[in-house]
């Protein structure tokens, strides 16, 4: 843990980084409302990237157009050089982008373990017939998927509740389970929508550690939305700020923190 600061600087200074996700003038309109307006930014492999902005700024909508929930009205979204704008969500997930949801969307009446297995199922190899006839390939694969899921639960510190119903978990654990489930799909890029919302300071601290581990130990690229400024500023190496769908600032936490436009956007919101 002591070397995280070192790694941070290393990552930001790494000039030879390869882009993994690139938004180019991504725009989406809902009727008359332009929820995301020509937003462009680039994530490099191994980034720990923050997306912030006041309520209703369009952050979640950015996630939605990246993951195929909505098709952008215009603009491109390049993932590993391939334009993924308008692909179906399942296709995006198969390509290697997975996400969590701001308003937790677990499979409530499934067990914690099963939730994670659903994530891992994406990489399945056996066919449906094998399962319906209960042939050994499907049975073995099931065992393997469950094992892998169990390992992930250990990492996310959820192993002790593996058999509980997901809906019965306390809030903080549900959020961690969402991350575990997303990790199970084996993504290259993971999008976290307000992962710390509703957590107490200790839980937040543990979460920050986990997110760093995801990046460092599992080699994922992380893009996260968060309202807790301290959390974001401590965790993320680069940040983009949205307001009313428009990108108003971008850069390192220090640059963003001192950008008058950002301060105004947040203050303006408070005075409203």
């Amino acid at each position: 843990m002591a070397n995280t600061a070192e790694q941070e600087t290393q990552a930001t200074l790494d000039e030879s980084a390869t882009p993994i996700l690139e938004l180019a003038d991504a725009t989406i309109k809902f009727g008359g409302l332009t929820a995301v307006d020509s937003v462009s930014f680039t994530l490099n492999k191994g980034d720990l990237f923050g997306l912030i902005g006041p309520n209703g700024a369009g952050k979640t909508t950015v996630f939605n157009i990246i993951t195929g929930v909505y098709k952008p009205t215009s603009g491109d979204i390049l993932f590993n050089g391939r334009n993924i704008a308008g692909l179906k969500p399942e296709k995006v997930a198969q390509l290697g982008i997975c996400r969590t949801f701001q308003n937790i969307r677990l499979f409530g009446s499934l067990s914690v373990l099963e939730n994670v297995v659903v994530g891992g199922f994406l990489r399945k190899k056996t066919g449906l017939f094998s399962a319906l006839a209960l042939l050994p390939p499907a049975v073995n694969e099931t065992t393997e998927l469950r094992k892998k899921a169990m390992d992930l639960l250990e990492v996310m510190d959820l192993a002790d509740v593996a058999q509980s119903r997901a809906a019965d978990l306390p809030y903080g654990k549900q959020r961690r389970l969402e991350i575990a489930r997303a990790m199970a799909t084996g993504p290259d890029l993971i999008l976290l929508d307000e992962p710390a919302a509703g957590m107490n300071p200790q839980e937040k601290e543990a979460l920050a550690t986990t997110v760093r581990r995801i990046r460092d130990d599992f080699d994922k690229t992380v893009l996260l939305i968060e309202h807790d400024m301290r959390f974001v500023m401590n965790l993320c190496e680069r940040i983009v700020v949205l307001d009313h769908g428009v990108e108003i600032s971008a850069g390192t936490p220090d640059i963003v923190r001192n950008d008058p436009k950002v301060i105004e956007a947040y203050l303006g919101e408070e005075s409203e």
Partner: peptide
């Protein structure tokens, strides 16, 4: 058999939450 193997889980997942299922590649 379907429910005994992992192949049954996507079916249950669709029942629970379609948006989340498709985000998980189902």
């Amino acid at each position: 058999n379907l429910l005994k193997t992992a192949h049954g889980l996507p079916f249950l997942a669709v029942r629970e939450d379609e948006v989340a299922s498709s985000a998980m590649g189902v």
